[in-house]
């Protein structure tokens, strides 16, 4: 499909993968057991704002959905736009399972409404003993995770990221190509 489409100049949006998203739950247990890293009770999902009325409708549908889930699981939510024109839904819940389930629910809803190609990533926040922020970023198009550990304004702790990569490699589908571990500065969670 790939080469023929390329030669004919046909672009198809990349299909999102969500079946591997749940593996973050077991990774969370490993992180706590082996590295004393605990989840921070926050997760977020980021997607591109598409300029169409259908998308606006999706946005209000999502809000209804999140209000309903809040009643069930006490998951708090916040919606904000970042400086690159992407929408973030930030979820807050002390139960990590609830966070993963809700992220999955949002992803499915976005895909069902035909905006799967707009899904950029979801982010799960962790912290170690000293309170260092650790993010695991899930890329929807590759279906893989990668670690992102910011340090100061524009630095990242590469060594720590590689360590996490090694520890989690049996649990999580991780992005093997390190050049694709794109930083996400100013994650709103």
């Amino acid at each position: 499909m790939g080469l023929i489409d390329a030669l004919l100049g046909r672009v198809r949006p990349a299909a999102p993968k969500i079946d591997t998203l749940f593996s973050i739950s077991t990774a969370c247990i490993t992180l706590e057991a082996n590295l004393d890293i605990t989840h921070a009770g926050v997760a977020g999902i980021c997607f591109k704002i598409v300029s169409s009325t259908t998308f606006d409708r999706l946005r209000s549908d999502l809000e209804d959905l999140l209000t309903l889930t809040r009643r069930d699981t006490a998951t708090e939510y916040r919606i904000e736009k970042d400086s690159f024109g992407y929408l973030w839904i930030v979820l807050r819940d002390n139960d990590f399972e609830d966070l993963v389930t809700t992220i999955n629910l949002i992803s499915e809803t976005v895909i069902e409404n035909g905006f799967g190609s707009a899904l950029l990533c979801s982010v799960f926040k962790f912290k170690n003993r000293r309170g260092k922020k650790i993010y695991m970023i899930y890329n929807y198009k590759s279906g893989r995770f990668y670690p992102f550990i910011p340090e100061g304004a524009r630095e990242r702790d590469g060594q720590y990221e590689l360590k996490l990569n090694a520890v989690l490699s049996t649990e999580l589908p991780l992005e093997k190509d390190i050049s694709k571990w794109y930083p996400m500065w100013g994650i709103p969670l």
Partner: peptide, 15 residues
Amino acid sequence: HTIVERLCNLANLSK
């Protein structure tokens, strides 16, 4: 760089 990275991510392309 960020704009390009995000577009590449969305379309599953190499940067």
